[in-house]
Amino acid sequence: MNKIKVSFKVNNKDYEIETTPLRRLLDILREDLKLMGTKEGCGEGECGACSVLIDGELSLACITPATQLEGKEILTIEGISDKDGEPSYIQKAFIDKGAVQCGFCTPGFVMATHKYIKDGGSNDETKIKEALSGNFCRCTGYAKIVDGVKEAIVRHNDKEAK
């Protein structure tokens, strides 16, 4: 495969890399940038473990090729930690509501929740389920995750009110 140069931002930091055009964003994050928070589950777009935001849109790093990254702003789970590795309020809400068991799916769910709250999502259960419909969890059953999202919305609103 021909090599290409691509420039993009990850969590507000600039990168320029040389790679093959169909190399997956997932591999760039994990192998080149050593950002291990984004997980590989199915590798085929089905499970959502690799969810990140690209230019504000929820996207799957396992099916996003390098060629499509030019000029893009990527946000990963590492980028939404509150400060210096401290878990974000979403992660804390998930933990408090028992929405985390093995934890493998959690980064993906947290990214989906971040996107949902950022877009002004309400605690309407149907809407929450729609927003999480691309993410799968083998452990928890979804009820606790929905509780986690609702709790995160409450904490987000508290933060905003302050």
Partner: peptide
């Protein structure tokens, strides 16, 4: 269009 994949797929 809401039936397509899940929300992650719909963004792409």
């Amino acid at each position: 269009s809401k039936l397509i994949g899940g929300y992650t797929i719909q963004g792409m």
